[in-house]
Amino acid sequence: MLLQKQKKGSQIAKGNRFLITITVLGSAGPIRFVVNEEEIVAAVIDTTLKSYAREGRLPILGSDLSCFQLYCSNAGSDALSPWETIGSRGGRNFLLYKKQVQPQAEMSDGEASMVAPEGGITRKGSGSFKAWLNKSLNFKISSH
């Protein structure tokens, strides 16, 4: 009788669990794992990023949850809210996108820098490598 109560209690604690498939934009294949339907989207994104990194997949995404949006592949075009439960839309297939970063104008020496969607910094203004090197190392490179 005690054994039956333990089994019954463990089933209640698990809740409704299901297998989800998350396709990461730019990755070779999907990531699959089991979640509780009451788990929030932010926790699912975190688990996805950890699994992605543990498997050594490319491109490297990072671990900042605020940089990503999760979309249900069969429900509209709106991203899921980070505080929404994963089972709220009834979907089992999801798409994980890195948020597009808008160009940021930083006015330093009259030049604007752009942040690329991948998170790296692109060229600053219309300068050349030689000008950047001169500025960085504070010495002049002769042309010949």
Rank of each mutant, 00 (worst) to 15 (best):
R57H: 00
E84G: 02
T48G: 07
N36G: 11
E38N: 15
G56H: 01
G87F: 03
L133Y: 12
S77K: 04
K98L: 12
L133N: 10
I45L: 07
L65Y: 01
Y52I: 06
K130C: 07
S66H: 11
G119Q: 04
Q100P: 15
D64I: 01
L70A: 02
T85L: 09
F94Y: 15
D64A: 00
R89N: 10
S77P: 06
N74G: 14
K98D: 09
L58H: 13
G62Q: 02
E39F: 03
S51Q: 10
P103Q: 04
T48H: 06
G62C: 08
A79R: 09
Y97K: 14
T48I: 05
V115F: 04
G62L: 00
Y52T: 01
Q69A: 10
D109A: 10
F68W: 03
D78E: 07
S77A: 00
L95P: 00
Y71G: 00
E118C: 13
G125Y: 01
L137P: 07
A112D: 12
Y97E: 09
Q69F: 04
D78S: 06
L58P: 04
Y71A: 01
K124N: 10
S113A: 13
Q102P: 15
S128V: 09
S77D: 08
F129A: 14
N74D: 13
T48Q: 05
G91E: 05
T122S: 07
S136N: 14
G62P: 02
D46G: 15
C67L: 11
G91W: 03
C72L: 13
L49M: 02
D64M: 00
C67V: 10
G110A: 08
W83S: 15
Y71N: 00
A79G: 10
L70P: 02
S136I: 09
S63I: 13
A116T: 11
A116R: 11
G62T: 04
G120R: 13
T47Q: 14
V115A: 06
L80S: 05
L80A: 08
A112S: 15
P117W: 03
G127Y: 12
I45M: 05
F94M: 06
A105S: 12
S128F: 09
N36I: 08
L137W: 12
S73P: 00
A53M: 14
F68I: 00
V41K: 00
E37C: 09
F129V: 10
N36E: 12
S88Q: 09
W83Y: 14
R92H: 02
G119Y: 03
Q102A: 15
T47D: 11
V41M: 04
Q100D: 13
M114Q: 12
R123V: 11
F129R: 08
V115W: 01
T85M: 09
S88M: 11
T48W: 03
I86P: 06
R92D: 05
G119R: 04
Q100V: 15
W132H: 12
E38G: 11
E55Q: 05
I45H: 05
E55L: 11
S51N: 12
E37M: 08
S63H: 13
S136C: 11
N93K: 08
L137D: 10
G127W: 13
N134W: 02
S113N: 15
I45C: 05
S73V: 04
P59Y: 04
D64W: 02
S128M: 13
D46A: 15
E84Y: 04
L80R: 03
G125A: 07
G125M: 00
S88V: 07
A75D: 07
W83K: 14
K50E: 14
S66Q: 14
Y71C: 03
E84T: 02
G127E: 12
R92N: 07
Y52M: 07
